[in-house]
Amino acid sequence: MSLDKATVTKIAHLARMKLSEDRLDHMVGELNNILDWVETLKQVDTEDVPPMTSAVRHSLRMREDKVTDGGYVDRILANAPDAEDGFFTVPKVVE
């Protein structure tokens, strides 16, 4: 199975990245090469093998459910490309 340009364009849209036509053309070949290569995994019998969910065995810790941090709007907005009145701003989304 190989990806065509329409599929690659769709993936770029899902990933929210605008790519030039030229880049998309390139990407079709590159992605297909990589996907062909990872096809080798199909040779491995993974019947009854559980997926690895953690690199090192450990159980997740529990902690008390309480607020331990926060209360510094200015620091949170310090790097915002465009902030106003204590909020992040984005282009208008409702008419």
């Binding site: 993936i11 990933a15 929210r16 605008k18 590159e30 992605l31 984005v90 282009p91």
Partner: peptide, 27 residues
């Protein structure tokens, strides 16, 4: 609009290899 802002930002903000890996990962 918002989607275009995302797409333009990520289209010009990331380099080729990063975009390639995001594409593979998204797929």
């Amino acid at each position: 609009n918002l989607i275009e802002m995302y797409e333009n930002t990520r289209g010009s903000g990331f380099g080729d290899e990063v975009q390639r890996r995001i594409m593979i990962g998204t797929y």
